[in-house]
């Protein structure tokens, strides 16, 4: 139990207060920045600030900086697998209908005869069957 006491880290009060104030300042900054439009950068800026805030919380409030490194491993591991989940799913959702866009650079030229005409195959036939009201979703997702 002596080990126990020795391993405990009692952080100074000022450190907690500093981290807390830092978080509040960052909140103000992110709200302020969001009032301006940076186009594509909006997402990156907001997420960047959120990551900094999250790191502060994890490192100091959750003591990751001072604790056994295995907790860090568990935490980072969970984010890693979450990343795999989202990114691998996006390999599908963002790239549907790809192969029809890649007609200009076929993978194996001699293997098949490639289409040369227009590529928007789906939309031209939407009228063929009036009951396919949901088909519009497809047109939007594949024609990007």
């Amino acid at each position: 139990m002596k080990d126990d006491a020795a391993q405990r880290h009692i952080l100074p009060l000022n450190l907690y207060l500093a981290v807390g104030s830092g978080l509040l300042v960052l909140t103000v900054i992110t709200v302020a920045v969001a009032q301006m439009d940076f186009g594509q950068m909006n997402l990156l800026i907001a997420m960047g600030i959120a990551v900094v805030k999250a790191t502060l919380v994890a490192m100091f409030f959750m003591h990751l900086k001072y604790d056994n490194r295995i907790y860090m491993l568990v935490f980072v591991g969970s984010l890693l697998f979450l990343g795999v989940f989202i990114i691998f799913t996006m390999f599908d959702t963002l790239r549907r209908g790809d192969i029809y866009e890649e007609i200009a650079e076929p993978y194996q030229k001699e293997a098949v005869i490639y289409r040369t005409a227009e590529t928007g195959t789906a939309s031209s036939h939407a009228a063929a069957d009036s009951s396919h009201n949901a088909a519009e979703t497809e047109t939007e997702t594949s024609d990007h």
Partner: peptide, 11 residues
């Protein structure tokens, strides 16, 4: 919540 806030309210 630190992530939910910007994802919904800000961007």
């Amino acid at each position: 919540w630190i992530f939910l806030f910007p994802l919904f309210y800000l961007i």
